[in-house]
Design a protein around this nucleic acid. Structure first.
Length: 465
DNA sequence: ATCGGCTCGCGCAA
DNA sequence: TGCGCGAAGCCGAT
């Protein structure tokens, strides 16, 4: 029987399993062929029902806030996942259309539908629509959190410190390596129509999507690349992680966030690998971010319906920011000026350029970057919208629960009050002098300048790896 | 270089 | 009810 923790598995409707043509795994979040509990669960059910397993992904042109940068990274991963599943005798089809329509269409011939999990508004709506519209049982399997959100906590947590002990006491149960499931029945004879991903750029060109942001010239999507970067992180960077995680001039970060965002790597796999490296405080510091902070973000978007607006903030933060709404702003920039990285602040401009040209920004600079948007916008509400829009537009890991929590943190979420300052009130501020004091910020600026210069010389498309 | 003060609310001990 | 303390804060005093 299954070794998947029962709390990962939840029927979304009370319909029966029916004797039809295949078990359908509607893959939408967990876009990977291994360390995928949703896939494994579907495979086990298919074996038990003596049916083939069909995997399907719904590729919509209208994914909220997505552009060519996100789509290419995702298609690179889907192509690889499709090929990997085929070698195991599993047909995976990528169909053009709104995900819930694609799933419902293929569900008409399915005995059972298995899906993975997403916490954002639209992801929940898609799953509700499939649970409602499918004529058979729909079962959701959580494969992208270490501790399923409602197991960790039944309420909106106010800070990491309140969630941390709840997560930690569940780790033994949920940090386990899955057992590979082999399929009794091949499904390669199933030939539903689908997009040919053989040429990712051709597939990309066929989509009607926002192309105003080009693909990242630096980062390649896919589970194999995620594994490669994970191994590189553990051998070369983890030994300095604790000391360097707030040092943006270094490269001692994992780059896992974008792969986690697209489900191209399992957080359980990453956690076990890092824990197994036995790097002491370094492992602990990384696991805090990977598990506690990331799953605090899941808790946030799950329990707070207004997760993408100023209204989600705790009462003290909203009150203090509103009290300082009329404070004089010595510097004021419009969203367009921010987007152009054309401010008076060379540190901020460097961060904006890193984000814009690579699809990534060092963690420490994300805080400074966002705090300055609050300081330089006409109102905190406008700052909130501007920070979130830029975040979701340029980051490969944008549009993730972690993005919404990170932006909210800039405005006081999951934080505590600090001394009164103009504009910020008691919300934590950050300053250029702080950057100078704590890290080699000039080296960071130089690093970004080198990077953007080399990317201009060797433009997009010639990605590394 | 290091330290204290600033400031609020949660959770736990009493 | 009181108390300690918290994602990476800042600033001025020593």
């Amino acid at each position: 029987m299954t070794r998947i923790a029962s709390e990962r598995i939840a029927p979304l409707n009370d319909r029966a399993v029916k004797p039809r043509d295949y078990v359908l795994y509607w893959m939408q979040q967990s876009q990977r062929p291994a360390w995928n509990d949703a896939l494994d669960f579907a495979a086990e059910r298919a074996n038990k029902l003596r049916q083939p397993l069909l995997v399907a992904f719904g590729l919509t042109d209208d994914y909220p806030d997505a552009n060519a940068r996100h789509y290419r990274f995702m298609l690179q991963g889907l192509r690889e996942t499709q090929a990997a599943l085929e070698t195991r005798g599993i047909r995976m089809v990528v169909q053009r259309g709104s995900p819930e329509r694609v799933a419902l269409d293929l569900a008409r011939h399915a005995s059972l539908v298995v899906c993975d999990r997403g916490y954002l508004r639209h992801q929940r709506q898609w799953r509700d629509a499939v649970a409602d519209g499918a004529g058979v049982q729909v079962v959701e399997v959580e494969a992208d959190a270490v501790v399923p959100v409602e197991v960790a906590s039944d309420k909106l947590e106010s800070a990491a410190r309140t969630l941390r002990p709840k997560i930690e006491r569940q780790l033994d149960r949920f940090l386990v390596k899955p057992r590979a499931v082999s399929l009794r029945k091949d499904s390669l004879h199933l030939q539903p129509p689908g997009i040919d991903l053989g040429d990712v750029d051709a597939a990309l060109a066929s989509l009607k999507i926002d192309r105003t942001v080009p693909p990242s010239p630096l980062f390649t999507g896919g589970p194999l690349q995620a594994e490669k970067l994970l191994r590189r992180f553990i051998t070369r960077k983890l030994p300095r992680y604790d000391a360097h995680r707030n040092q943006p001039q270094t490269d001692d970060v994992s780059y896992m966030s974008m792969y986690l965002h697209f489900g191209q790597i399992s957080p359980v796999r990453v956690a076990l690998a890092v824990r197994g490296a036995e790097a002491g405080d370094n492992s602990a510091a990384f696991l805090e971010e990977l598990i506690v902070r990331r799953e605090l973000a899941f808790n946030f978007v799950w329990h707070c319906p207004q997760y993408d607006t100023f209204d989600c903030l705790p009462a003290w933060a909203k009150a203090t920011l509103q009290q300082h709404q009329r404070d004089k702003r010595p510097h004021r920039y419009s969203p367009a000026q921010l987007d152009a990285a054309a401010t008076h602040d060379p540190y901020w401009n460097a961060a904006m350029n890193e984000m814009k040209h690579t699809g990534y920004m060092h963690n420490h600079m994300r805080m400074y970057w966002g705090k300055k948007i609050l300081e330089w916008s006409r109102t905190p509400q406008q700052a909130y919208a501007a920070a979130l829009a830029l975040n979701n537009r340029y980051f490969l890991d944008g549009r993730d629960p972690a993005s919404y929590a990170n932006v909210a943190w800039l405005f006081g979420m999951h934080d505590r009050p600090w001394p009164q300052r103009p504009i910020f009130g008691t919300v934590r501020s950050m300053t250029a002098s702080g950057l100078k004091r704590k890290c080699d910020i000039e080296a960071y600026v130089a690093k970004v300048n080198r990077l953007t210069a080399s990317l201009t010389t060797h433009p997009a498309g010639t990605s590394r790896s």
